[in-house]
Amino acid sequence: MGTPLGDFIRAKRDSIQPESLGLPDRGRRRSPGLRRSDLAARAGVSVEYLTRIEQGRDRNPSVPVVNALADALSLDPAERGHLRYLAKITGGECIAHTRPSPPRREVRGNVLRTLRLLEPGIAVVSNRLGDVLARSSGFESVTSGTGLLDTERPNLTRYVFTDPRARAFFADWDAIADEQAFDLWLGPSIENSEWLSTELATVAGPDFTRRLNRHVVPPRGVLRLRHPAGPELRLLRETLELPTDDQQLVVFLAADEQTAQAVEQLRHRPGGRLRAIS
């Protein structure tokens, strides 16, 4: 049985052309990408040890080995961070099996006060599973009529993969789907996200599971929204991590003057007030 760490290393190895690393073309290969022997040599480990890591038979590689693999794969900073995270949770899987528990939904008072200071801007407090825990009136304005906030406990990940309206709302739906699937790996624990992953795998099918198992670090560029009222919005995202709460505060900023004007028009439509969901 494989592990997230092994899956990621194998996927990255398969995606690399040897020529891009200055390695000679050795003819036909049984699988695409970098040979296991070449990666092992670049990382300074044995082929047998690398095989054990990729197949999940060694779940606790040392920090130097993880760093050597990152160097050998020429990972960028975001991918290196993901590799280290996967090494951490993969090692934890064989140490303890805790009972699945949902992440906390309460938003601290000081975080809510900060959110109010951002009014009438566009901001939301969420967790890595996509639960919308608190939002500003500006966030409600730009998502009104999309179906995202229609449920008692709105969840962006579930909305992206199960609500047909999401494909119309997100101009770059594929990129957003990649982001939401990737973020499930960044939850407080594997147990926290397992229940949601299982649910989505059933209703969303391969569209979700393929993204979840690719371990591709998303670029998170400009967010383009097609609002039902007509205007297309281009928003920049600034994220404030709240590590003690396993939550994040995301602020959305207009990327151009046209978006700023469209957001102002949406604010004058009937909207809601700041709301915290617990």
Rank of each mutant, 00 (worst) to 15 (best):
A68R: 03
E79F: 00
L75F: 00
R57S: 09
V63F: 09
R57L: 02
L86I: 03
Q55V: 06
S62P: 01
E79N: 02
G81V: 04
P77R: 10
P77E: 15
I53Y: 12
L86T: 06
R84C: 04
K88Q: 15
V66A: 08
H82E: 08
I89G: 08
A72P: 00
P77Y: 09
L69T: 11
L86K: 03
A72W: 07
D71Y: 11
L83R: 04
V65I: 15
Y85S: 12
L83V: 02
G81S: 12
R57A: 07
A70T: 12
P64H: 13
A70Q: 14
I53D: 13
A87F: 11
S74W: 05
G56D: 12
D71P: 03
G81K: 10
R59N: 10
N67L: 15
R57P: 02
L86R: 02
K88S: 15
D58I: 00
D76L: 03
E79S: 05
A72H: 06
V63Y: 11
A68L: 05
R59M: 05
D58R: 12
G56L: 00
H82F: 00
V65Q: 12
I53F: 08
N60F: 01
L75G: 01
L75C: 00
L86S: 05
D76P: 02
V63R: 13
L73N: 07
H82K: 04
L86D: 09
A78M: 07
I53N: 13
L73M: 04
R57D: 11
